[in-house]
Amino acid sequence: MAEHNLRCSGCGIQVQTEKPEELGYAPEAALKRDPLLCQRCFRIKHYNEMSSVTPDQDEFLKILSGIGSTDALIVHIVDLFDFEGSLIGGLHRFVGSNPVVLVVNKIDLLPKAINTNRILNWVQRMAKENGLKTAEIVLCSAKKNIGFDRVVEAVARLRKDKDVYVVGATNVGKSTLINRLIRDYSDLESELTVSPYPGTTLDLVQIPLDDGRFIIDTPGIVYKHRLTELIDKKDMQTLLPDKPIKPAVYQLNEQQTLYFGALARFDFVQGARQSFTCYISNAVPIHRTKLERADELYATHKGEMLAPPHKDRLELLPPLVKHAFRIPKGSLSDILISGLGWIAINSDAGAQVVVHAPKGVKVAVRSSLI
């Protein structure tokens, strides 16, 4: 039962006091708190604890489908570290003719010497390939406040007395970005609940602007093809980098294998000796072995030497399945494992490779980002 249509200031869900196992629950005593937080957001905020209650995927799509009938500016936030995995496929079907600002977050995770113009050009190409028409693309880091002034400027210039809908997949930094807007451009004292776990924002959260319009935070879309949605919450901090990646370069002969904990495996099956650069969280250990020993190594050491996930959480991960790729000569490519990172193939000599990833996780070849 809802309590007089009270809403949680963290996630936006309607508060109820009768069913602790369902979303929006808060004890009676909590209704007197300002800001009002549901039990789930209270635990995230104060104890870094995540409830097992998850929102319904259909509700996410229902909310998005209503945006096209409004006159609004759409801010679509994606995670540069998982660009393809966090991009909303077919966004144009939801937003209609409304303009889209593509905010590419977590630029701070790339090595510091990277040319940002090259990254911007790459994002423009990838957006076009995915059928996404953008009014503007902005690279930023909400966490480090890099490029945030350009996001604010683009929103101010393009919204023209419109509401602003902020959309994105789970865990791309959406709430962090909006919290900066709250602190800098709104009189609201409360902040959205920010956690390292998927699905933090559960309903529309409206943030009033000075002109009577709103910034509207929508729930994050849960994409099961991202590894971050499949692993246990205890392994999330290991998988998600929180500082610039230190690329790990491996010179491999054919018939050699790299394991990324027990999360994924990369086999260099055939090709001239060449280097491969791994862009993954530096907290995830990489182990090299011979291809002929790879199956035995996994069977013997998964969850122990090959971790995360650790043994007590290994059964939560779907079984690894094979994805075979032939990289043609003259092609500089990346192989993306959604939610984990990517492996750059540095040579244009061509290669035959196989990636083993948990069933359902997106694995794809793309043009080289770096």
Rank of each mutant, 00 (worst) to 15 (best):
D242P: 00
S141M: 06
D56H: 12
E28R: 13
V15E: 06
E189K: 14
I137R: 13
C140G: 05
M236D: 00
A262H: 07
S367E: 15
R157D: 13
L177H: 03
R293T: 09
T218W: 11
R125K: 10
A351H: 12
D334I: 00
G303M: 10
Y279D: 04
V15Q: 02
P111H: 02
S331L: 11
D56N: 14
C140D: 04
Y25K: 06
A127V: 09
K224W: 13
Q206A: 14
C278N: 08
Q256C: 01
I178P: 08
E304N: 13
S368A: 11
T116I: 00
K128V: 09
A142L: 06
K362W: 13
T228D: 15
E191N: 13
P219D: 07
F268N: 02
M236W: 11
A127R: 02
L320I: 01
L37W: 08
V78M: 05
L110C: 08
M126A: 04
R150Q: 12
P111E: 08
V167D: 07
K112Q: 13
P247R: 12
Q255V: 11
G173W: 03
F83P: 07
I207N: 09
P208R: 15
L306C: 08
G261N: 07
N130A: 04
L37R: 15
L73W: 13
K133G: 05
L61K: 14
V53A: 14
L188N: 06
A154R: 09
D34Y: 10
P27M: 11
G68C: 09
L291G: 10
C41Q: 01
I221W: 08
R33D: 14
K311P: 06
D108R: 06
I114Y: 14
G303C: 07
V95A: 05
D71Q: 11
I216N: 12
I74Q: 13
V355K: 00
L64V: 00
S333L: 07
T170V: 02
D149N: 11
S190L: 01
P308F: 08
Q255N: 10
D161E: 15
V205A: 03
I286R: 07
S65Y: 07
F214C: 12
N179Q: 07
D295P: 02
I345P: 08
R7A: 04
D187A: 11
I13N: 05
M236Q: 14
G341D: 05
A351T: 06
I327W: 08
K160Y: 05
P27L: 06
S281N: 07
I286A: 08
N98L: 09
T200P: 03
H225S: 12
V284H: 06
V166R: 01
F81T: 04
T238F: 14
P55E: 10
E59K: 14
V101L: 11
D217M: 03
G173E: 02
D79P: 09
R118P: 09
